[in-house]
Design a protein around this nucleic acid. Structure first.
Lengths: 242, 242
DNA sequence: CGTTTGATTGACACGAGTCAACACCAGTGG
DNA sequence: CCACTGGTGTTGACTCGTGTCAATCAAACG
């Protein structure tokens, strides 16, 4: 494989967007060019903050980021995770003020893409435009699945569902093995995601481990039997539209 | 006011989209033309069902509809309400299979808009295109707010928040007075929305009434003191981007 | 009018939160 | 190199919000 192909196929954005449209080599080259100036961002750093006027969009190349909202009582709700290849919505500069914040969870590599670059991409590369639109629809679908999960799944199944989703998404961008991936979240962050206390997160993790559904070695989470965890969680990957 | 103007300003789609872009008279005329063939749909009827291939998009002119998902255990989660002027996402035909269902809650008036019509609108009326994009972003923002609500608000505040949101949204399309609107949901449907049992919905409604926050006469819900309910719910309309 | 659907109520069980203490690091600075 | 520190994970005790079940009531409807 040539040096260039390695770069192309190792690019998580391209890996993801391939699922949304049949990209051409030129499309891929444009996307590669887009990621020419990555920057390193420390862990727990806001990429953009609620109420700020959005300008660039932020593409995650490496690491993990999240969308979150702070509530009046000081509590936090994490409403989405951005894994490599994900980005803050490409049409977001249309809004005058962010309704949520986006922050890194781990040290990350991020590319800031200007509205101009996006507009040029959208008008010159229709397949990329379609793929970006597809990615937006998938993000919506994930929100809906999370809503269903929070509303109607018990906390243990909800957590299992989150792990199933993360495994599937991380696999599509080459960031997970068959059955394991890095889960660099604190238990408090997991709690802010599924809407429970960190103490309860701890207990549920123990339960999932005791039930032989998952294993944790450091920050690596291994799903012992993917089929069984899918079944337990009621996970059906349809909504990821792969 | 001319007959035509009445039609234009009474059109909930236009009323909503005015918030997303500065429409011209021609834009409005195109949008009016789009709604030329409405149809009546009985209550509790699917407009489109999960797993189906989406073709048309569905615009609500009158009535109330919702997005929902059924889970493996038979429970239901309502992930969004579609009020007059709302529509199933205009880019959804890009997907091969719906990841959720859309159904009427009440008897409704609906317009089916073909992908062709949408594409024509998008390419000929850039301001409408922008407004539709804006509407999509607002729908996303609502999902995120609901996620934050489900995760981190107590059931009573969450319900209060829902009422604050519905009042605000319904007012923008002329379907609510200063402080009251029709709430045609059963308590079970409210429960499927905020993720609690219908029994608990009943108790919380009583509590909100006893606290003098809301009043119900038949299906009309009146918010006795909007400021106070906003405060109780921690409601901030920013995320609706009006 | 029966029948059905939705609202209401009470009793009871259990999931999950809170509080507090403690263990276990990894990093830091003396 | 080791004590110190702050962040994170773990545990137990207790409380309370919510779910479940079941019965009853009220209202809508054919």
């Amino acid at each position: 494989m040539s040096q260039e192909n390695v770069a192309i196929f190792a690019n998580p954005l391209i890996m993801r967007l391939e699922h949304g449209a049949a990209l051409t080599d030129e499309d891929r080259a444009r996307l590669i060019a887009l990621t020419a100036n990555p920057r390193r961002v420390p862990a727990r750093t806001d990429l953009i903050h609620e109420n700020e006027k959005p300008r660039d969009i932020h593409l995650i190349i490496q690491g993990l980021a999240c969308r979150y909202k702070l509530l009046a009582d000081g509590s936090r709700a994490i409403t989405a995770f951005l894994i490599p290849g994900d980005f803050s919505h490409f049409q977001i500069p249309l809004l005058n003020a962010m309704d949520h914040s986006v922050a890194t969870v781990t040290p990350s590599v991020v590319v800031d893409i200007t509205k101009t670059e996006i507009d040029s991409l959208l008008s010159n590369n229709p397949r990329v435009a379609q793929a970006l639109t597809w990615a937006g629809l998938v993000d919506d679908a994930i929100s809906r699945e999370w809503l269903a999960s929070m509303g109607r799944r018990s906390a243990d199944r909800q957590m299992a569902h989150l792990f199933c989703e993360l495994l599937t998404r991380l696999r599509t961008v080459g960031c997970a093995t068959e059955s394991s991936f890095e889960l660099p979240l604190t238990q408090e962050e997991i709690g802010d995601t599924i809407g429970i206390s960190s103490v309860h997160v701890n207990r549920i993790l123990q339960q999932l481990r005791d039930d032989g559904l998952i294993a944790q070695r450091g920050k690596t989470l291994t799903i012992i039997d993917v089929e069984r965890l899918n079944g337990f969680a009621g996970f059906n990957a349809n909504y990821l539209h792969l």
